[in-house]
Each structure stands twice: as C-alpha cells, then as structure tokens.
Design a binder for these strands. Structure first.
Lengths: 214, 214, 214, 214
DNA sequence: AATGAATGAGAGTTCATTCAT
DNA sequence: TATGAATGAACTCTCATTCAT
C-alpha cells in the first residue's frame, strides 16, 4: 500500500508524499493512535527523514491541518460566483463543500474530527478556517436580506447564530454523507438547502426549494 | 484542584466521584491525553482503586459515555410532552437539549467530541444514543406533516437527511454555545428553531418563528 | 469450587483450609502466578485473614512447602520396615513414595517444581527433605553391600552419586506418572525397581527383578 | 556487572548479547523474578531496544528456550556415533550431555527448571526436546536388546518407563553435578552409567560397568 | 474473629525523538 | 539526501500488603 520506494526525490515531492501519508493515517486513526512509524512506512520513507522535513509530530499534524483547511476553503471559494441571487450562491457553495469533503474524506476527518479534539493550537487553526466560511455565509445572509428590500430586524448576534447553525448542519451532513453509502454530494446539498432555506415549516406546507438544473 | 481527601467512603459513592473526575478529564483532554493518574488524582483517590472499581481505561471511558448518553437522552425525554403541536414539541426538546449540554459541558464534550473519535465501540455507543434522538425528530416531522393535512411527498430518505441535518445543527450549536460566552440555552434553541422551522427563506421575508412565552 | 463459607471457625481449621487452598493454587500456577486473591477466594476467606494467620506470601509458601515435605517423608518412612532384605525395603519405600505423590499431585508439584525455582530459602527447605531421603537410600545401599558379604570398593562419593541418581529418577518418574494417565504407583515403582536394581544390562540379558506379591 | 557499553553494533550481534543476558538472568532468577530492566542492563542496552528486537518478555523467553534446547540436542547428537555397541553409544551420549549442561549451567537451568514451570507453551517446547532424547534412548535400548539376541518380553510401555527413568536420572544428576563442586561431567556420566547399566544388584555383587579409556 | 476500603511500588510496553554514519 | 541504531520518558495495569471498623 505504501508509496513505491523511489530513492533520491526532490524535497518538495517527498514532502507531499509524507503529508499524504500523514493525512491518511491521521484521518483514519486519529492523532494519538497514528504513530510516526506508521506514517513513515506508509510514505515509504525512514522516520528520521520525516523529522528532517516536518520537524515533529505536532508540526506534521499542524501542516496537515493547514493544508487541508486551505484546500477546503479554496474549493468552496472556487465554487461560488458573485452575481447570482443569494440562494443560488448558497447552493453553489454547499455543492462545492460537499463535493470536496466527499473527495477528501481523510482530510475532512482530520479537520472536523481530529483537529478539534487535539489541543487548543489545532482547534484554533480549524476555527480560523471555519470563521472564513461562517463570514462568507453571514455576508450572504446579509446580502439576501438587503436584496429582499427588507430591512432585517435580525440583530447581528442572531445572524451569527444562524450562520453557525448552517455551517454546523453542513459539517454534520458531510460526515454523515461520507459514512452513508449511496449519498451523493448533490443529494446532501439539496437536503441541506431545503432544510435551511425553505425550513421545516414550509416543507410541511408542501413548499420545497428546488435545486437549479445541472 | 483535586477533591478533598475524604477517606473510607462506600464503594458506590467513590465510584461516582471517579466517574465525575473521569468525565471532566476526558472531556477536557480527550481519551489519550487523559492519563489514569490525572483522573485518580482529581478523584482524590489512588490509581489502583480506580482499576479495582472501573476495571480499565477503556471500561472507564465506556462507563462515562454510557452515563452521559443516558443522562442526555433522559433530559430531552423529560423536557418533551406529547400532545402540543409539533413545533412546540420540537422547541421543548431543543430547549431541554441545550440546557443539558450547557449544564454538562464536559459530558457533552465526551459524547460529541471524544467518543466519536476513539474506536468503533464508543462511536457505536454514541450512535445508538443519537439514533434515539434522530428517531424522535423523524417521528416529529412525520406527525407535523400529517397534522398539516398534507400527504407529504417527502421520501423517507429525505426525511432521514432532514433529521440528520437538524440534529447535526443542534450538536454544532451546542458546542458553539458552550464555547461562546453569553449565549444562553434559550437563545441557542430560538436560533435553531428559527433556522430549522421557518427557514432562511421565510426569515428573509420577515417571517420568523416565535418562541412560546416562558 | 471454593470451600463452603462457614463463618467463625476455630483458627486451626481455618488455617488448614487456607493451606489446602494455597497448596492447590501454588501447585497448579506456581509461586508468582498464584495471587493472594486467588488463594483467599479459594479458601473462602478474606485476604486480611490470610495475612493475619499466615503473615506473608513468602511465609505462606514456606509453610506449604514444610507441610508437604513433612507429609511426604512421613509417608515414605511409614511404608518401610527394617528387617526385610534391602531390595524389599527399597521396593516398599518406592511404593510408598509413588503412592503419596500420586495422591497429592499439587503438593508434589509445589515441592518438586515450584519450591526449587523460587529462591534459595525454599530450595533449601526442599534440599533438607531430599537429604533425608537420600540418606535413607545411601544407608540402604550400604546395608545391602554389607549383607552381600561384599566389602564394597565403592567410595562414599560414588554412593552419594548413586543415591542421587536413584532419587532423581524417582522424582522424574513421579512427575511423569502424574502426567501420564493410566500409570499406577505400583507400575511406576516396578519400572524404577527394575531399572535401578537389575540395571539395563541384566534386563537385556532377560534377568528382571520381580516385585513381591501384594 | 553489565557488558561494556559498546555503541552502534549490528543488529545480529546485539541480539545475541541480549539472548546471552536473558539466559543468564532467567536461569538464575526464573521467569517472573527476572525483569526486563535487569536483562537490558546486563546486556548493556536500553529496554526499548530489547523490545524492538525481541518483541516481548514471553517471546524473549521462548527464544532463549528454543536456542538452549537446540544447542543441547545438537551437542548430544554430535557426541554419539552409530556403529559402536549400545553401551558405548549410551556412554557417549551421557558424556556429551553432562559436558554440555556443565558448560551451560544457566541454559540448563532455563530448560530444566524454569521453562517447565512457566506456562504450557514453554513446557511443550521442552517436552519436544525431551522427546527427541527419550526417543534416542528408547531406540538404543531396543538395539541393545536385539544385539543381545534376546527377544525381549519388555512391553513398549515398560520401555517408555525405562527411558523416562534414565532421562530423569540424567536430568537430576546434571542439576546435582552443577550444584556440587568437584563433580566432573565424566564422573557424573560414570555414576549414571553404572547405575543404569549394571544396576544396583550387580554393583552389590561387585560387578561394575567400566567406562572406556579416554 | 473477620472484612471492605485503600495504596506504594514496580512491572511490561510503547512512542516521539535523536545520534552517527 | 537518507537511514539503521538507540533511548528517555511516560503510560497502563497488577499485586502484596495494610488500615479502620
């Protein structure tokens, strides 16, 4: 399973191999259960080399978290275009989000499951990333309210809570979708969009939100 | 920091002291970072006694998880009365949930953060508890739909997703509320209720859901 | 399996129960693998009581060894009558020996297997018992030689070796007989008597030693 | 006491050093009383290295037992040449046996004393080695009987007992010889040969067996 | 006479980390 | 650039032993 043992590779390449191995191992076993031996072996490299390049287990983990967080935020950013109405933007963002987490389950696991349970430092890293996304969503909600020509009496504090709820729901759904065979990113996004945009009340009344055509 | 060293207590009492200390330690540090020494010291007891009563670190953790899960489910159950309309039932459930998680932040941390990241066995334990809550919510949505005289065309699969999203949002909000000073259980419940029941669409249109008077 | 829990017994009786339990446990598990918990439970008594009566694990073991050694030597002594010719005396002694070891396998195990592997002190205890038996055998060989009107040119040192060999063979055969189903004490004694008295040379030549009628 | 701390040795060498230290420690203290710390220190190495190379205390002990058993059997095998008459073969085997046990007292102690008292697995290992020797002796007795043109009426069962007695006597004598200063391997072998081949009866009658000239 | 409650001390084992080459 | 050899420190767990009643 480990990478093919090719000797004398340029540093950048080796480093990526190690990070890949680390994300996979951390994602599947968690921070403490993942041993440096495991990671080095999966990377097809000796342990001292891992230390030479990545310094320490903590640093290695931090680098993984940073890499995965950056990639996730970038993916969401790339999925959204300003211009279309708010619900469309939200839909695009969610679709990008679920698509990325589905394609990088170990990275998602590292971010959502393990980074938060292992020490302030890593939790902070994740919180920072999360904040970016929450800000984006908050911004979206604000735009939507303005666009509705409705001067919202929603205090900022409430909006923060709403964004938090939305993001939280998305996170849970991502984990659930990854663990439930047969659930696609589109389905996850549609479910959440219905839930969040139309709301249970509307759904009960037969009014659902419809995803745009592919 | 440790409990006052009171000697010679009956077994049942000591056992609860140990469990309290364990939940606190596990909740704040996670399974692996929490050492049996830490727990014993916080319980004001020697390590061998912990082993004598609770068997092993795994067993101790399992007992904690079980205890907290049972307590949480019981709290939610106790908060809800059948009879009132679905939105009221949902509100009551959420309020009970957020109240309990706010009062037992370490227990919530154990359940939501640590039990899910440490081994299939514990994850299963939590999944079982979660399943009870999800079932309750699913049931609620079904009732609401029927009460609305609306034969819902929502397939079961979608309902599962909705319940998952709702519970996921609640879980995230609970963690967020615990970490954000000044957010009360009522506020968290109201935010989620608005988000989930009315939906962002309605909120944008100025139609919010109102919590019942205290 | 443990003794019936009868409360408030006279000390002497309780002590024997404990020693029985200890011999059984030590015999089957060895000194270190036998825990004081095991012994106390098998004796149907609380651990502090064992300490109250027998002092410590070492003392308990020593007492077991002493008791079993005394019993074994007594059994052999009781089996032999002076007067009959040497081969008959030897036969009687061996028969008594194998009979006793067969009836007290755990005691034999304690003496032969475990006491010798656990510290000088216990080994010494066993060596003392052994010395008695070896002396008896040495004496027997001397008598026999004199009775044969043959002034033996066997130096004392050789006689010691012969007695050692005989006793060693007997010990091995006892363990072997206990472990081999279907081998009786009489058979073991006959085998050894043939081997030791007639010798392989005579046996090859068709000259065997015959046990006396029952 | 410990070996001189020579750093950075190839694995194979270090491994032998560890095994030497282990045999010595196990032989003198027994399985449980020998701690991994003791062994590591005697080997001039840190404990983790012992684990890295030999896996666990059980594995280490098993390796010791296997090594010593193999060496002992090999020594006996190498001492015997087929061709000469049975008594000569037996003499050669015994001499080789006593020579080896005298030169490796700790190894002998591990095999005879400790391996048999510590768990089925190790006992089995020793039993297997013993079986080889017993088979060799049984074979020898059979050959001798045939060579004597004497169709022996010794049933197989009796032969097994005889071989057992002979081997048992040899084992006891080996331990005795190691513990008794001044007893050489030759003397031990001669004593046993006299005892076993001529028999006490013949010895009493002044007929002894004579060892071949050196 | 007897025991439930409690512990000091030490064992085996693992792991992140570093030399020396 | 890369690694085989090696370890300090910590952790889980067990056990003989005692105290207070």
């Amino acid at each position: 399973m480990g990478a093919v043992k090719t000797k004398r590779m340029p540093r950048a390449v080796r480093e990526q191999q190690m990070l890949d191995a680390a994300v996979r191992t951390f994602g599947q076993r968690g921070y403490t259960a993942a041993s440096m031996d495991d990671i080095a072996e999966l990377a097809g490299v000796s342990k001292p080399l891992v230390y030479l390049y990545l310094n320490s287990k903590d640093d290695l983990f931090a680098t993984c978290v940073r890499r995965e967080a950056t990639a996730l935020v970038a993916a969401v950013r790339a999925g959204v275009r300003t211009g279309p109405p708010a619900d469309r933007q939200l839909w695009d963002g969610l679709l990008a989000f679920f698509t990325h987490t589905a394609e990088h389950p170990d990275g998602w696991s590292v971010l959502h499951l393990h980074a938060r349970t292992h020490g302030e430092v890593f939790a902070a890293e994740v919180t920072a990333m999360r904040a970016e996304i929450v800000a984006f969503v908050t911004h979206l909600i604000g735009d939507a309210a303005r666009a509705a020509h409705h001067d919202p009496d929603l205090p900022d504090h409430d909006v923060a809570g709403l964004a938090e709820a939305l993001v939280g729901a998305a996170e849970s759904l991502a984990t659930w979708a990854n663990a439930t065979p047969g659930v696609t990113a589109r389905q996850a996004a549609a479910t959440l969009m219905n839930f969040a945009w139309a709301g249970l009340g509307d759904l009960m009344a037969g009014r659902a939100w419809s995803p745009p055509p592919v």
